[in-house]
């Protein structure tokens, strides 16, 4: 497989009040180019630390992280790494810098030292890709949370990264804003081939991913397709996670003596599975 990111036996330690904490423990992981990966885990499971390791914002205490074959520890190639892997954070208000949407999106490409004409093209394309082109002359603070977060994403993709790492980008949004972001990410992944690594608390957002990784205590405890992961309801609950209500329903049905598979996530698949089970008796 073609790897965009390779994490090799990485441990990340930090010191607080003279005590050393291990946030990520001897973790290895490959992210395939063009894939859509979701990382789940409760607060303090190490998933945000891992996210920052992926583009060199955090440097591994032990072990190495390679982006397109480049070691993120190497200072001379630091900018190249950050260009390849762009990050989006939780709070959109903390990520917007300019007073006009298109100027905000231009901030990154301007810093790359691109020609004005090229910047113009990239800004327009990025705004179209996230569905915010018609707002290019607006003021960011007049936008909704979901719209602001889409502008933040546009600002990153205008730098044409190969991979986007997003650390709970939907945590502060309402359901409509959340759906906007997920659809935008799916589109960027499917149409532009951008690799996506999405960290989230919302299990439903893992539904359409190629791969789901579950973290607990700084380690990966599960790794598979969404239906493989959500099959194991008990295990997810023991690490402080829950499952989508669809899976919960199937799980409760199976506990109550109905013969249903619990590895369905979408409303359509769940209904089909229940219909099948109902026809059996």
């Amino acid at each position: 497989m073609d790897k965009i990111i390779e994490v090799k036996n990485v441990t990340y330690e930090y010191t607080e009040e003279e005590t050393t904490h291990i946030a990520v423990k001897d973790l290895s992981l490959c992210i395939e180019r063009g894939s859509f990966t979701v990382i789940l885990g409760h607060n303090g499971s190490g998933k945000s630390t891992l996210a920052k390791l992926l583009n060199g914002l955090n440097k591994a205490t032990f072990g190495d992280v390679f982006v397109d074959g480049i070691n993120t520890k190497n200072e001379e190639t630091e900018i190249e790494v950050k260009r390849k892997v762009g990050m989006v954070f939780q709070n959109p208000d903390n990520q917007l810098v300019a007073s006009i949407v298109e100027e905000d999106v231009a901030f990154g490409p301007e810093n790359l030292g691109l020609a004005p004409r090229e910047i113009r093209v990239r800004v327009d394309e990025a705004l179209k890709a996230v569905g915010m082109y018609e707002f290019k002359d607006s003021t960011p603070h007049r936008l909704s949370g979901g719209q602001k977060q889409r502008v933040a994403i546009a600002g990153i993709i205008a730098m044409e990264p190969e991979c986007l790492v997003l650390d709970e980008p939907t945590a502060m949004l309402d359901p409509k804003g959340r759906a906007e972001i997920i659809n935008t990410l799916l589109k960027l992944n499917r149409e532009k081939g951008i690799t996506v690594v999405l960290i989230t608390h919302y299990m439903e957002e893992a539904e359409k991913a190629d791969r789901v990784i579950v973290m607990n205590n700084g380690s990966i405890i599960d790794d598979g397709t969404p239906s493989e992961i959500f099959k194991n309801v008990e295990k997810l609950k023991t690490v402080g996670l829950d499952v989508p209500q669809t899976t919960e329903l199937l799980y409760e049905l199976s506990k109550n003596g109905f013969s249903v598979n619990t590895n369905k996530i979408s409303v359509e698949d769940t209904a089909l599975e229940i219909k099948r089970a109902l026809e059996e008796f």
């Binding site: 709970e168 502060m172 608390h201």
Partner: peptide, 8 residues
């Protein structure tokens, strides 16, 4: 519950 993980 905005911004919290499932356990939270």
């Amino acid at each position: 519950t905005a911004g919290l993980d499932p356990k939270g």
